[in-house]
């Protein structure tokens, strides 16, 4: 018998099913439910046990979200690797995507950005969406002799304005972006010659030069020392606080994610979990606690925008 146990933060009377009746589901099936007042529930039946999490809807505050996923299933070769995910990523929100290695974080983000096709479901983008992707610095070619300023200028490139050299406005925007990340003195250096922390700051400068309203960052603190890590996270925080942009950041820094983010997306391919919600609710998830151990409740974050 399947037991549908509502979590502590949602009263049982709030539950409404947006999927075929639960009893029609078999163990291992994916399901998606909605709870009134709670935007997203994604769960997987595992031998009769169900785990859920949710987050308060942001629709009232942000009538036009930047991205909406509906029953989005991500994966490869037509095979979903995660449960169907329903999300509304609002403006000025800070999302952290967490989970173990191989959890499906990058696959989810790539699908969100339109780089990979969804296995099923859909992603709806706001007409004014201007995304920018900050890759892991390790994925950049160490042979390519690209100078810092030329790299940052890439951020200013737009479809329809591809011909010819960079204009004065673009150059000034790139220099300003470099100044914002405290890397103006690096502009003539080769990107490949920079330290990890410097390189990450330049990657952020390119993102700033793109004047995007959605920044997707793939583990921006990977392989950084503590000082650089702190500096980069400070700059990332400024993207939402200073620029009013939305940030979706893949990270392995659980404590920071819980502290900083408005919303958390916890993915765990192995256990078939995709849980979304505010940090204070996500920490209660047995799935998260099974993986990370008991997690401290996040303190109120003065930088959080939600």
């Amino acid at each position: 018998m399947v037991v549908f146990a509502a979590p502590a933060y949602a009263s049982p009377c709030d539950v409404s099913l947006a999927v075929p009746p639960i009893h029609s589901k078999k163990a291992g099936d994916w399901m998606a439910c909605e709870i009134a007042g709670v935007e997203t529930i994604v769960a997987r039946f595992v031998g009769g046990a169900t785990e859920k999490a949710g987050h308060r809807t942001v629709a009232a505050q942000n009538p036009e979200p930047l991205l909406v996923t509906r029953a989005l299933e991500v994966g490869y070769d037509g095979e979903a690797i995660l449960p169907a995910i329903d999300l509304r990523i609002g403006r000025k929100e800070f999302w952290s995507v967490i989970g173990p290695n191989g959890a499906g974080k990058s696959t989810f983000v790539r699908t969100l950005l339109g780089l990979d096709r969804p296995v099923r479901g859909s992603v709806t983008r706001a007409p004014d969406l201007r995304p920018c992707y900050v890759p892991q610095q390790a994925t950049l070619d160490p042979i390519f002799p690209i100078k810092v300023l030329d790299f940052v200028l890439m951020g200013a490139l737009e479809r329809g304005k591809l011909l010819g050299p960079a204009g004065q406005v673009e150059i000034e925007a790139a220099l300003q972006a470099l100044a914002e990340v405290r890397a103006a003195d690096l502009r003539r250096r080769l990107l490949r010659d920079l330290s990890g922390g410097q390189r990450q700051r330049v990657l952020l400068a390119r993102a700033l030069a793109a004047r995007a309203n959605l920044y997707v960052l793939d583990e921006p603190t990977a392989a950084l020392d503590v000082a650089s890590e702190r500096e980069v996270l400070e700059l990332v925080g400024a993207l939402t606080a200073g620029r009013g942009a939305t940030v979706v950041m893949i990270t392995h820094m659980l404590e920071d994610a819980l502290q900083r983010a408005d919303q958390i997306l916890f993915l765990d391919r192995e256990h078939g979990l995709a849980l979304a919600g505010p940090p204070r609710e996500i920490v209660k998830s047995p799935g998260l606690q099974r993986l990370y151990g008991p997690v401290m409740s996040p303190k109120p974050n003065p930088n959080a925008t939600g």
């Binding site: 780089l115 890759p135 890439m154």
Partner: peptide, 12 residues
């Protein structure tokens, strides 16, 4: 250099 970044920025 960065085809993924270019694709996200909607370059052809």
């Amino acid at each position: 250099y960065d085809p993924t970044g270019a694709q996200v920025q909607d370059l052809p």
